[in-house]
Design a protein around this nucleic acid. Structure first.
Lengths: 253, 253
DNA sequence: GATAGAGTGATTGGATCCAGAATCGGAGCC
DNA sequence: GGCTCCGATTCTGGATCCAATCACTCTATC
């Protein structure tokens, strides 16, 4: 193995890339993003098979980039690839959700603790503003409010100022279809109320510059969300999928 | 997009796969593992270009699995793929190391805290035994002691009993070539002493069933290791890749 | 002598081809 | 009537082919 060193030296782009985004060949990443979006939005339901030829046709590319995109999604854990049988959208077991959310809670807690020391007056105002979009009562939950909920968390990650931290949290989130999370949050009004109130408490702690309270409130908030999500999967695990738009009986175990 | 539901329903294998390992087509994963191993061991140095044809020849496969393997490594962050210019082993910036290790510290702290409540008498004994292999003085640092160091941490992750947690920590570790970490730890005797002493303190906290101390000691231990690693990259970064096509000693070790 | 430009070689990325595996359907047998 | 075995179809995964891009070099001009 020679492992040649390039003569034109390591471009900063390659060595220092801050976002770790490694801007790679457009097509594969685009393809991966497109497939991920379809899964996250629920257009492709959990448990569904992903046929390479079909995806390729739909996205207007050949099978090659689709295959590589599926590999990426596989390492992310969103889909499962079984040797000669293709890929399926993973159906997370409830305990998997609880495990993941315990980790996420710890990390979001860290992000929130870091944010206390770094947040500006403007940042706090903006955060409040975003959370106002989530205030219960005025509007029925829609995609806008889902986006606002995401934005609340993502803003805190940005304020925390640790790229790796933000990335790890994002990766955990991307392991579970987002539409399910959103659905859980809003299928019962009480959850919306709780969600909003928890955000308020986090905001209060941020304003009071109380590191430990901020951390604790955020942790509790995430654990709570994870519990709701886990229970959703528990309720559903024995019942239905929506493939072809109609309910589909599935029995695990 | 049809997103067909398979008639033979979701095998448990696919839906419940506990390890999240998604046993996929052997060849790509094997290839990825082989390439990763060569990078981790330092056989392929940081900053080196990875030529698909060359890797394919070396590993005795065609370029196809190599390409997909490189995608996997890319999403892991170990390598960077630039559009039409191929892949290079990423050279982490010191601040990236510090960010990553702050996250890792938090997670290892969590693992350690969980371990306190779950560890058995036998587990504790085994852990002590592993750490004895790291006791300074008797042997010069070799691959065996590096393995023991890894094993110490991995055992704690296993005892913690959260698959996702273990996986996230592993992913962070795999973002930095291991040989560098090992090298840092043992290039100066003081680091070995500190490392051993820190492990001992963690063991003591585990034995005393003191959750918060265990967490704190582990966090401090990981942060310390990260700082050493970051400083190593700082020292090298000035000498290694600053000239534009300049002398270039990349043989470490 | 230095610099800009064109040409050539090397390498990546997308498309296609082919073999192997798995599933599904049907026929035969119990 | 149900179960099992066998064949056909479909799909994945590996190999190969081809175009496009990039880097490097050689040359010509200023």
């Amino acid at each position: 193995m020679t492992a040649r060193i390039p003569l034109t030296l390591l471009s900063d782009e390659a060595t220092m890339d801050p976002a770790l985004t490694t801007a790679s060949s457009a097509l594969v990443d685009e393809t991966a993003a497109a497939i991920r979006a379809r899964i996250m939005s629920g257009e492709i339901p959990i448990g569904a098979q992903l046929r390479q030829a079909e995806l390729a046709k739909t996205l207007g590319v050949s099978r090659t980039p689709v295959r590589e995109a599926l590999r990426q999604l596989q390492t992310g854990g969103l889909i499962a690839v079984v040797p000669n049988r293709g890929a399926v959208v993973r159906v997370p077991a409830p305990w998997e959700v609880r495990e993941a959310y315990e980790v996420r809670a710890e990390l979001e807690g860290l992000a929130c603790a870091r944010a206390v020391r770094r947040i500006t007056r403007d940042g706090l105002a903006e955060l409040r503003q975003v959370n106002e979009l989530l205030r219960p009562g005025d509007t029925p939950p829609d995609t806008a409010s889902h986006a606002a909920n995401d934005r609340f968390h993502i803003m805190i990650h940005q304020i925390a100022g640790n790229e790796r931290l933000a990335r790890v949290i994002r990766e955990i989130n991307e392991a579970f279809p987002r539409n399910v999370s959103a659905l859980v949050l809003h299928e019962h009004p009480r959850h919306r109320d709780d969600n909003f109130a928890e955000h308020e408490r986090i905001l209060a702690a941020l304003e009071a510059e109380d590191v430990e309270t901020a951390r604790r409130e955020m942790q509790a908030h995430v654990i709570e969300a994870g519990e709701q999500l886990a229970q959703w999967y528990e309720r559903r695990s024995g019942t239905v999928f929506h493939g072809h738009g109609q309910p589909f009986q599935v029995n695990f175990g």
